[in-house]
Design a protein around this nucleic acid. Structure first.
Lengths: 141, 141
DNA sequence: AGAATAAAAGACTCTTTTATCCGAAATTAA
DNA sequence: TTAATTTCGGATAAAAGAGTCTTTTATTCT
């Protein structure tokens, strides 16, 4: 098990990669796929979810491809995770117990609640701009 | 996506349930399955992983079933997660980047390292005894 | 207008996880 | 020793996630 799905990881890596390129030009998905070692057709599907949420922007045809849908400092990792994997990670009980909540918490409720809130905040606070400015962050595959 | 697999959640809930019962008696897996609303044959398989690690103890035949393999204060949630889902949750990079580590961290490395270490410690510190003594913790399904 | 290119859309396959089924082995009770 | 019970072990099936393929649609260039 992993916290994020493979689709989501592909999406995150792609968003970071695209943010590193010229922001005006459209980059063909096949180029990204080759660069990041991701199945191209699969990546196409994943990116559609990001374009629907205006995180990405796409264009068909000869000079087509994808680019960021808005300024990279307006896109957080949270946005991307939410668009692809949804928000359940940030909301569900650790033990997946339906009844667990403030009124009738499981013993993990408090700690886990803080944990996932912190995680969410961390992702919200991390923009693509921050990621690409961080010199240490080179590997994307 | 969830942090833990369904198998693991089944295992955790079962361990807590069994800890709540008389520790000497064997409880038939079918009884547990009915009580916790888990497919019995599937649960049987999952529990085999716990018996192999001596977290549980099983007996075939008429008075058979499963019981804890040791004192409930000697069994932590970490033990159970490790037995079923392994330790990758506690070890992998948030972005699943192979290269990420102390020498060449991704920007999430530090925060995520702390997160997962905290999570691991929290699970290590939470014994079945603690769980069943916590009066608030009633729901197991 | 026509050819080439690239994403969108949908059907299909492959793999992993989850779930079911069945015969065998172990244990108890009569 | 036989019948009943219950886990074990392996095979199979169903569901979900990941990945592939083909056709359609939009766009550019000649």
């Amino acid at each position: 098990m992993a916290l994020l799905s493979k689709s989501c990881l592909y999406g995150l890596r792609t968003a970071i990669f695209v943010a590193q390129q010229n922001h005006n030009a459209f980059i063909p998905i096949s180029d990204i796929a080759k660069e990041l070692d991701i199945p191209a057709d699969f990546l196409t599907k994943i990116l559609q979810r990001l374009t629907k949420k205006n995180i990405m922007n796409s264009l068909r045809g000869v000079k087509g491809g994808v680019r960021l849908g808005k300024s990279p400092d307006k896109i957080s990792m949270y946005d991307i995770v939410q668009a692809i994997d949804g928000e359940t990670i940030f909301k569900k009980c650790f033990l997946n117990l339906e009844g667990c909540g403030e009124e009738a918490p499981c013993p993990f409720h408090e700690s886990w609640k803080d944990f996932r809130t912190n995680l969410g905040n961390m992702l919200k606070d991390t923009s693509l701009t921050f990621l690409i400015e961080n010199k240490k962050f080179t590997r994307l595959k």
